[in-house]
Amino acid sequence: MPSRPPAAELRRFVRRLPWALLGALVLWLLVRPAYDRFLCGATRALARAVESPPAALVVRDGDHVLLGRSDLPPDAAKLRFSLTQVHFNLVPFLALTLALPGALAGGRWRRLVVALAVFAAAHVLALFFQLRGHYAFSLGNWSLANSSSLERNLVGTARLFFDIVVTFGLPFGAWAVAFREGVARLAGLSASG
């Protein structure tokens, strides 16, 4: 049975949120160069593992990534995609986490590690499906020759799912799962019973 949490707790959370957002932004900016490299490397490895011949081109270009194939002529279309768009959702997630009083107390930092691993997997898949979408839709005759109508539909759906649903839904979902006791206190739900 839901019971009303003290409004003071929510006010405290909201007061902490701007500072938490600032902290999250600083963390994100510090980690981003290494994370961009990881993301491009992991996506390239995943793409090459599932294609034959392995020719995925995933090249970091500042805060963007160039997606294409290395076995096509150099003037073949390449997709330039924003890496910020892929992983900016770490910022609201970290801000929500830092704003929640005692979120990481009592060994709950392990849940943060698990949540960050989920984010990393989601980001790699988001970039992977951008690449597969580029293969399926943007390479003219090569796309038509190498992807069926069913594959194009599946890739288009997966790309939309990771680009929109996961990007916008994951920060709240991951926060609510990872720090369920604190979120339940704020929301007035019992986390255990």
Binding site: I164, V165, A176, A184, L189, A191, G193
Partner: peptide, 18 residues
């Protein structure tokens, strides 16, 4: 837990709405 059921419903609804 109620929190777990809430998140499960949230995920299903989110995917459905999108």
């Amino acid at each position: 837990s109620p929190a777990g059921r809430f998140v499960a419903r949230y995920v299903v609804l989110l995917v459905g709405l999108f």
